[in-house]
Design a protein around this nucleic acid. Structure first.
Lengths: 248, 248
DNA sequence: CTATTGCTTTGATTCAGATCAAGCGGGGAA
DNA sequence: TTCCCCGCTTGATCTGAATCAAAGCAATAG
């Protein structure tokens, strides 16, 4: 499933302002009513940690607004981001209490949570929710594998171009943009966060962003607003990433 | 789920000589009979490609004997391995025909296949098979994320130590070894394949293996047989990898 | 018993990205 | 207004792994 199909596959649940990826078009009114009963909202400030690696997580959730990241850390402090959660993305694993990475809000974050137990019971009763989750998990796995290629084999420049392409594409999908006109978006990450995502240092990220600007692949307004005049060119710079694996 | 629990979660199906990870302890005799009807075997020679990226895959399967790898390739030939399939591992994605990476037999390989359509029908009828697949997929995702940390942030020496630790652990689990005595195993991969797995060159792999040998972390009999006198030491060399993420 | 072939090791050199270090610029607090 | 802080850029230097190159070794074919 590509991201462009997302809107047709999802439903709003109740009064949530977003379409939850986990709530699918096949959910009937009874299921939606169940979700209504077990849901609640949580909000986090930018920089706050949602869950620490190893902690128990007694809920599953969708991101409503804001951005969260999944990060793994080594004892000596080396960090690797392993996932990026944008609005409509799902967190949490039915059947698993603990989580193997830190979940952090990088911007102010609002999540729509469902208590884990009743959610799992609902999954038992309504197999298509489970199937939907399996599909989503397989998508995440494909994205993770695409990312492994990036981390293992791409150059710094290709890494940056890949990340920009992914953010551009996801952003375009969220906005339901028409495809004419230049793509433009705000970077939701600091240079350091980008570095943690790409397996680079922040200095290298900065240098390569500058290089892409100098070479006319992108232009910047301020530090964060990116304008992509020629998306095809960006994809070319990204290496074989023509299919733009979604990061989580 | 750790690998050590695997045997309690799996069943043999029919006369297969292995326990399939996808066939779980909750499967009843009717389900096993269904599996019996839709299964068949395929064998591949070392080096043969099982499926090319983008190809249709009309079956799902378990590895019975031998080793297969999942690989992503860029146009210019840079390769990154994204998965390693050992006996009992599952390949294929219910609900998806095409596959996004090459699957290759690195040794002679026997797979127990199930036709995809009837397998999916069975999944619809018996939700716990779907749940089992969801669990397995979540495990793979955790392993993939662990691997992202390795690819993005570990040094060459740590990468080698991590790979050896994972193979040692999996091998021990397959053998159901008692834990006394030194761990010993045969490397199922060439230096080049190890390099493709770790995001290194084969020369670097060779050098780092030699270095670990020189430093007394491992010893070798011939090129491929590894003896690990002190597993804890190996884990320490591997970085924070104390939990040893399973590669696929 | 050679020759060939595929895998592996080892050495010399290069280079992409890390590290160390300095300075910029904008926004918020006093 | 001024200062400070934080995120960012840029420069100089260093280094771990890649690259280029040559041999060693064991298995197989002739």
């Amino acid at each position: 499933m590509t991201l462009h199909e997302v809107p047709t596959l999802l439903h709003r649940c109740g009064d949530c302002p977003i379409r939850h990826r986990a709530v699918c078009a096949r959910c009937d009114s009874e299921e939606l009513a169940t979700l209504e009963q077990i849901k609640y909202y949580r909000s986090y400030q930018a920089g706050q940690t949602v869950i620490w690696s190893g902690d128990k997580m007694d809920f599953v959730a969708s991101v409503v607004t804001g951005i969260a990241t999944l990060t793994q850390t080594m004892e000596d402090g080396r960090r690797q981001m392993v996932g990026l959660l944008l609005p409509s993305d799902f967190v949490g694993r039915p059947g698993r209490q603990t989580v193997a990475y830190d979940v952090t809000a990088t911007t102010d974050l609002l999540m729509c949570c469902f208590r884990r137990k009743p959610f799992e019971e609902m999954m038992q009763k309504t197999p298509h929710v489970g199937q939907r989750l399996l599909e989503m998990t397989l998508d995440e796995l494909d994205a993770a594998r695409e990312w492994m290629l990036l981390l293992g084999r791409k150059t710094a420049r290709e890494k940056i171009a890949s990340l920009l392409a992914i953010i551009a594409r996801r952003d375009a999908a969220l906005k339901l943009r028409e495809s004419n006109g230049p793509m433009t978006f705000d970077l939701p990450l600091t240079r350091e966060e980008m570095a943690d995502y790409l397996g680079l240092t922040l200095e290298t990220v900065s240098r390569q962003v500058s290089a892409l600007k100098r070479d006319g692949v992108i232009s910047l307004e301020g530090k964060r607003h990116v304008i992509v005049a020629d998306f095809a060119r960006l994809l070319e710079e990204a290496g074989d990433d023509s299919d733009g694996g979604l990061p989580v």
